[in-house]
Design a protein around this nucleic acid. Structure first.
Length: 573
RNA sequence: GGCCCCAUGGUCUAGUCUGGAUAUGAUAUCAGCCUUCUAAGCUGAGGAUCCCGGGUUCGAAUCCCGGUGGGGCCGCCA
């Protein structure tokens, strides 16, 4: 449309400036569909912009092309109002085109999350991680990419030994059931006990014992390995329940630190041998890569005794993933505190020719603080578990349903079905509507409020639409009389047209929040429409059909939008 | 010391990349709207030095420079 208008304007005005680059979409609805700021034109013409604007609108009004409805000069701007029938008809006639956006060249994109440390239960930080990771993978899939989901389990090291030691000392006769805990919480409980036990029984030298255990683990001591396996079984059992709640679906592949932690040595040695830029060796045999030039300092990759470090593992894992999937892009969903680590990693991977730096992307997100803006501390036990938040949200939804006339007598099964969907919708929306990089202060009370810009608000909007559809039959084959729409409705239909652009930007910039904000925009638009334009009591059958059709399309778009956020809709709520 | 991120009504937030008109919404507060398609809704009111100071520009929340406040990272730990 900009093209049509700009070529029309170019033929009208005698200027050298490319008119198309000047045209913009006004921020205010009341300023029309397209506007032309006249400052640069005025400069070229040597006139006052306000006058230029007046002249242009006068000229066009005298000879209006049929794609325009009206032209208004407002100060130094010319505002164009497009012929609204031409604008809205495509939404009804080719709705599917507005329900999707497909990229020109689909890529294989690997996305890795939530990558937990297996000595702890998943906490509120993982909540943010899982919700972001899932919706990121949804939006990329939606626009046509081939998305591969992987998860790295950090399942070895001194931490898990702490838990193993405590289990052997104090809890070997207990089970998660006997203590009434989720299996992963049981292991986390053992882990937390370690610090207390060290203080209480210093004579036992637990720290030393744990170190010995780690050595035994590394030398494949059968008994220790079995203990380790036993605890990890508990952990994964619990994690799977959490993943299920958070609707993570299946991973295409799970990696385990225990299987790769001592690998990667060859890659480093070979790089040194081949004189890869920056790879150097200390006198004691330690190998590092010198990134002084890049501003990252020295990064050690092998200790003097030739054992590997965290970075070495990640280099190795990158090569394994490249080998397994040959992806075009590797996305790591990890907190922003690891930014330095990833910058260095990507740099090294490029040096080693494993992957161009441009193929790797650290999708970083900010820290989740408590209500007062303080850090949650898992050691002090005042952290919020991912399961706990989920349960709270679901319970709150249940309470809400039971407090409402319409739903207070629901069967238990239906009640829990609905409260799961509503609670998880509220939870997802709370996290996804905001900029992932800003740190957030999580307030349970605020999250439990289901009014305003929330998931339940969007779900409620969808349910309202379905309720109307149950009362009046919609014939999708019957054409719509576009003259039935009033100004407000036309505005709403134009909102629907924005969806492909929203999808495009969200997928290119990995900007999940814009999807959430669009869902809000759709919902607000509908609720306003709902209040002012009754469908059931429309004046004529034509008007009723037009309105119902619009409501239907909006509902479908809203459902699609929410599905990207991992939020399901309900027919009734 | 070096580097990174964040800063918009009391609180939360859109817009910043790609400069444009009256800064987007929400929440809380106050005032209205349910025998009317589900009130988890709608309407109205008040509430903002867009962190500060320079600069660029016809025009800056947006771009550049310098500060301030908050958070984070910089290990032969993971």
């Amino acid at each position: 449309m900009n093209k049509e208008l700009s070529s029309f304007l170019s033929s009208l005005l005698n200027v050298t400036i490319d008119i198309e680059t000047l045209l913009e979409k006004p921020k205010h609805e009341s300023h029309g569909d397209i506007s032309l700021p006249c400052f640069l034109l005025a400069k070229e013409l040597g006139k006052n912009p306000v006058e230029v604007s007046k002249e242009i609108s006068q000229k066009i009004t005298n000879d209006m092309p049929n794609f325009l409805e009206k032209v208004v000069s407002m100060g130094p701007f010319v505002n164009f109002y497009l012929n609204s029938e031409q604008e809205i008809a495509p939404v009804f006639e080719e709705f599917n085109n507005f329900l999707s956006f497909q990229v020109d060249s689909p890529q294989k994109i690997l996305i890795e999350y939530p990558s937990p440390n297996t000595n702890k239960s998943l906490h509120i930080g993982h909540t943010r991680n899982m919700l972001l990771g899932s919706s990121l993978s949804n939006i990329l899939t939606k626009v046509g990419h081939d998305v591969v989901k992987t998860n790295l389990n950090n399942d070895r090291g001194i931490s898990i030994c702490y838990a193993m030691l405590m289990y052997r000392e104090f809890f070997s006769h207990e089970t998660p059931q006997s203590l009434g805990m989720k299996p992963d919480e049981f292991v986390a409980h053992c882990y937390v006990e370690f610090k207390k036990a060290c203080e209480k029984y210093p004579e036992k030298e637990y720290e030393k014992q744990a170190q010995e255990m780690l050595v035994q683990w590394e030398s494949n001591n059968k008994e220790i390995r079995e203990l380790w396996k036993k605890l990890l079984d508990f952990v994964y059992q619990g994690y799977n329940k959490t993943y299920e709640n958070y609707k993570l679906g299946n991973f295409d592949k799970q990696y385990f630190e225990s299987e790769i932690f001592d690998q990667g040595k060859e890659i480093v040695l070979k790089a040194l041998e081949n004189n890869v830029e920056g790879f150097k060796q200390e006198e004691d045999g330690a190998i590092y890569v010198d990134l002084e030039k890049e501003g990252y300092g020295k990064k050690y990759l092998l200790r003097g005794d030739q054992t590997t470090l965290y970075m070495t593992q990640d280099i190795y894992l990158a090569s394994v993933k490249e080998n397994d999937f040959h992806a075009d892009k590797y996305i790591f969903v990890v907190g922003q505190e690891q930014e330095y680590h990833f910058k260095v990693l990507f740099n090294i991977l490029e040096k080693l020719d494993i992957a161009d730096a441009s193929k790797n992307y650290h999708f970083a997100y900010g820290y989740v603080y408590n209500e007062e803006g303080k850090k949650f501390s898992s050691r002090l036990g005042n952290t919020i578990g991912a399961d706990f938040i989920y349960d709270e949200m679901v319970n709150k939804s249940k309470e809400n349903l039971l407090s409402k006339e319409l739903t207070k007598n629901l069967e238990e099964e239906e009640l829990s079905y609905r409260s799961n969907i509503i609670g998880f919708g509220a939870l997802s929306f709370t996290f996804l509507k905001q900029n992932p990089l800003s740190s957030m202060n999580f307030s349970m009370e605020q999250a439990l409020s289901f009014e305003g810009e929330t998931g339940p608000y969007c779900q409620y909007t969808y349910a309202r639409i379905q309720s109307i559809k149950r009362k009046i039959h919609l014939d999708l084959e019957k054409s719509v009389d576009y003259t039935q729409f009033n100004e407000k409705e036309i505005k709403l239909i134009k909102t629907l047209k924005e969806y492909p652009q929203v999808l495009k930007e969200a997928s290119e910039k990995y900007k999940i929040s814009s999807i959430a904000h669009f869902a809000i925009k759709l919902s607000q638009g509908f609720n306003d429409f709902y209040q002012s334009s009754s469908i059931l009591k429309a004046q004529t059958p034509e008007q009723q059909h037009a309105r119902l059709y619009l409501a239907h399309l909006l509902g479908e778009m809203l459902k699609d939008c929410l599905s990207i956020l991992g939020i399901e809709v309900l027919e009734e709520m």
